[in-house]
Amino acid sequence: MTFSRRSFLAASAGVAMPLGAPSLALAQAREFRLGILTPPGHPWNRAALKVGETLKAETNGRLSLTVFHAGQLGNEAAMLQQMQSGALDMGWIMAAELGSRVPTIAAITAPYVVDSTPKIAKLVRHPVAMKLFDVLPRETGTVGLAWGITGMRAIFSARDISRLADIRGMKLRINPTPVYRDFYQSLGAAPTPIPTPAVFDAMSNGQVDGLEADLEFSWNQRFDRVSKVILMMNAVFMPVIALVSGRVWTTLPAADREIITRAVKAALDIQIDELAVNEPKLVEQFKAGPAQVRVADPKDAEAVVAEFDKLWLPKAPVLAELRQVGRTL
């Protein structure tokens, strides 16, 4: 079920509400439910809990938030469906899931839009990135409030690799989002579907040659212990979007929508800044470990990126604008 953009805009403006409804709603207590796939302790989860603390403090407990961690409410597709129906108030959904449905959202995960985590931090706050949310009410029945981020992803390889050309022929566990699939296939990799909990053993026994993942997640999983090389791609990243059910959003008075939006942005701003500051320390931790840390030359990907854009620009014209912004950061 999708949520009409027309009804969303009308209701957001208060047109469809009965006289007096906003002031009545403003006086009512409301407990929101938020679903998220990542486990307790993850930076996104900590940010979600911070939102709940802020809502409680700013409204003297009138607005509260319960966070359901680690996919307790189902996978991201299930949580998105629940938000579309209004059964779930909020969900923090990764661009991989949304990008598989909405090419405009997928565009931000295209290779080499930016080439460092500090630039990611700037990109997701840029008006062009925020404007990507405009398609969400129509396409998904949800309202986007803010981005959260992971850092640049790297390849953890059981092979001895040092450049992009060495990826050719590798059985590589990747996130199955269409952008990543098209990019890594163009590099000659053979994307191999392996459940995340099985990746460590799959690398150990040679079932896959490696995986691509963000550094923070990989440190927690210690994929460097089954890797010869960590190849820093500085090519792609995977953000998350803080979503609210469109059906729920239209029932809230403007003042409450403002409080929620401000709380979400503030919490994710902290998450973004902390990641940008901490990632260099994480790289140093990896350098002290068993795997060699190497950096791929982005010039080696110029032809691949040109072919990628031929495929994706017709589907997501905003990609050209994102690349232009990325060059200025």
Score class of each variant (00 low, 15 high):
P127L: 01
A301E: 10
E284V: 12
I259R: 01
L329M: 11
L73D: 09
A303T: 13
N278P: 01
A48Y: 02
Y184C: 05
Q82E: 10
T328P: 07
H126C: 04
L172R: 07
G61I: 00
P193N: 15
D273G: 07
V179T: 08
L187D: 12
W249D: 05
W219H: 09
I260R: 04
I241P: 11
I161P: 04
I259Y: 05
V229M: 05
K56E: 11
E76M: 04
A254D: 09
L164M: 12
A48T: 00
P280I: 00
K131D: 15
M203C: 04
F217S: 10
M90W: 10
Q324T: 08
M233E: 06
E302F: 12
I155P: 04
A77W: 10
G206Q: 03
A190D: 13
A21C: 03
D297N: 15
F68R: 04
K281Y: 06
L243P: 11
A96E: 10
K171F: 03
K171T: 06
A154H: 09
G41I: 13
S204A: 15
P137C: 09
G86N: 05
L37P: 03
P191Y: 08
A21Y: 13
D224E: 09
N278T: 05
A29V: 00
P137G: 09
I174T: 07
G41S: 13
W219L: 13
A296K: 11
H69M: 07
P137Y: 05
V124D: 04
K299R: 14
D115Q: 14
R222V: 09
A235C: 12
D309E: 11
L136I: 10
L26V: 01
G52F: 06
R323M: 15
Y180G: 07
R30Q: 09
P176M: 00
G246E: 08
K56P: 00
L322Q: 09
R247A: 13
R294P: 03
A316T: 06
G52L: 07
P127A: 00
L88R: 06
V277C: 00
F68K: 06
L123S: 02
